[in-house]
Design a protein around this nucleic acid. Structure first.
Lengths: 114, 114
DNA sequence: GCAAACTAGTTTGCCGCGCAAACCTTATGC
DNA sequence: GCATAAGGTTTGCGCGGCAAACTAGTTTGC
């Protein structure tokens, strides 16, 4: 087994579950491309129901990966989310781990290679 | 929001959960690089306990992504796993989806881009 | 002015899943 | 003969994602 494969596997086994969840990965990806985003925008951008978006945002906030700001616009409440520096780092680390796995190309050896 | 980002998000939201799980991703990655692998080898290669390896292999088999062959070597049982064509396709598809996400580079725009 | 509908989220409940631990069976040492 | 190891499978539990229900306030229709 190649060293690069060994590292790729160790990487994927060590991914942050908070980041690894598809819905949250979508949220973090969107947030990484803008300074902030409103709840309604994320709802559309990530194709999530309000309920699920709300709970995922709460978890990301609890993990310190995003910050949530609530305010009023006119008489309506509005929630804004932004990625934190820790969130950026976590996403970066995740991307490296996944990139390593994708780099583990599909090479054919005979049976296993102990 | 850029088209490539839109596609990346749709991709990640649509990943096959059977493949997305880190332990199974490790198993599939190892299997994709050899014709087959023995249980004991996978245990070491994927750093999984026998119990967890067993249950993950069962799920992969149930999903048709790997095939399991049981036989006896002397008087001891031995289990061999191999990735199936469907498994290769699923892994391939997964890789494309993740690659799209990694490709969604971290570009800074001002706030959101509706 | 009041009900119905809409906006903007949060909370609740279920069920499916990953993981650790217990268990089983057949060898191999001591 | 009794512990230990190889080669797994099964069981139990606790967390977690998702859909659905709920809350709270606002706007619209009549």
């Amino acid at each position: 087994m190649k060293d690069s494969t060994r590292e790729a596997i160790d990487g994927v086994l060590g991914v942050d579950r908070l980041v690894h969840e598809p819905a949250r990965l979508a949220i973090l990806t969107v947030l990484s491309q803008a300074e902030y985003a409103e709840f309604g925008f994320l709802e559309l951008a990530c194709r999530l129901s309000k309920g699920n978006l709300s709970s995922h945002l709460s978890k990301l906030e609890a993990g310190g990966l995003v910050s949530i700001e609530k305010r009023f616009v006119g008489k309506r409440p509005q929630t804004r989310a932004a990625i934190t520096p820790a969130g950026r780092e976590a996403l970066q680390r995740y991307r490296k781990q996944l990139a390593a796995l994708l780099g583990a190309a599909t090479e054919q050896n005979g049976g296993e290679t102990p």
